[in-house]
């Protein structure tokens, strides 16, 4: 029977209407308090002094420099982790080999590490007392408290996004399509481009979207390696922190509102992509 079309609201097995109403009420209140209000507060504080102050805050030279750096970091980190994600997913999903489960766990590792520790490990590696620090200093190469360090820390924290989205997707799809293409005489690269890539494009985009959101919004890891040099090694989230700590709240929230818009755009695109991907619900847990 068409069980899916049954209206469970009228089911004699469900909760009484009163319990249902109370539960919905509690949940709505909880979400309003913990999710909606913080978001609203960002925009309310950002425009407290009017649009002119907002424009001034976000077009101030340090803010623009932070914006440029954040974009630069994302432009480097996202494509690198995209290539990594596709390569890892290809190896893991299309082949059977020993140690696969361990490899998958290792790819997920950055999600289980505190962002501050993600930054710390690079300080230990490249810092003055670190393993490579003295050698780098001797050759005049700056990594820590400079752009390369920020990029590396961002790479670390955003590494799993694309891979963990593609691995289950490509495992579900199996290898039959690729084998068919190869049996028809297509080359490996041609097969990947014309058969595999179209199959995974939405999942790929989904992973890139989440990867980008995190890359632009990362705070803890970047904060540790950046050195907070204004106009040079400040990303947008770090700039927000500095403004806030200087008690320049309207400017801090104005710049923060840019990141909030990024989050909203990400959520909208994510929801749209989930419909494409046929996720029943947006069920992929994020970082």
């Amino acid at each position: 029977m068409a069980r899916g079309t049954r209206d469970w609201r009228r089911s004699p097995v469900g909760e009484p209407a009163l319990a249902r109403g109370v539960l919905i009420g509690v949940v709505l209140l909880f979400l309003a308090l913990f999710l909606l209000l913080p978001l609203v507060a960002v925009f309310a504080e950002a425009f407290r002094l009017g649009p002119a102050a907002w424009i001034a805050a976000v077009t101030e030279p340090d803010a623009l420099a932070a914006l440029r750096l954040t974009l630069l970091v994302a432009v480097i980190a996202v494509p690198l982790n995209l290539v990594f994600g596709v390569a890892a997913a290809w190896a893991i999903a299309k082949f059977e080999f020993r140690g696969k489960a361990v490899l998958i766990t290792l790819i997920d590792l950055p999600f289980s590490v505190s962002p501050v520790i993600s930054g710390l490990v690079y300080v230990l590696l490249f810092g003055g007392g670190g393993l490579l620090g003295p050698w780098l200093k001797g050759h005049g190469i700056e990594i820590l408290f400079a752009v390369p360090g920020i990029v590396l820390a961002t790479l670390f924290v955003t590494l799993p996004f694309v891979a963990r989205e593609l691995i289950p997707l490509m495992q579900d799809q199996g290898t039959a399509d690729e084998e068919a293409a190869l049996s028809l005489g297509a080359s490996g690269w041609h097969t990947f481009r014309t058969v595999t890539l179209p199959n995974i494009r939405w999942g790929l985009l989904y992973g890139v979207l989440l990867c980008n959101a995190r890359a632009m919004g990362e705070f803890g890891a970047v904060s540790v390696v950046s050195g907070h040099i204004r106009g040079l090694t400040n990303t947008v989230p770090l700039h927000v922190e500095i403004l806030y700590n200087e008690y320049n709240f309207p400017a801090a929230f104005a710049v923060a509102s840019l990141l909030a818009v990024l989050a909203l755009v990400t959520l909208v695109l994510k929801t749209a992509l989930e419909a494409r991907l046929g996720h029943g619900t947006p069920s992929r847990a994020g970082p």
């Binding site: 979400l31 999710l35 913080p38 978001l39 507060a41 960002v42 504080e45 962002p115 989440l210 959101a213 632009m216 919004g217 990362e218 705070f219 803890g220 989230p237 770090l238 927000v240 922190e241 806030y244 801090a252 929230f253 923060a256 990141l259 909030a260 990024l262 989050a263 909203l264 990400t266 959520l267 994510k270 947006p282 994020g286 970082p287």
Partner: peptide
């Protein structure tokens, strides 16, 4: 529900 995944932590923090 995914807002906390998408909103940078510093923004959530100051808000």
């Amino acid at each position: 529900v995914d807002l906390p995944f998408a909103l940078p932590t510093a923004v959530a923090g100051i808000s």
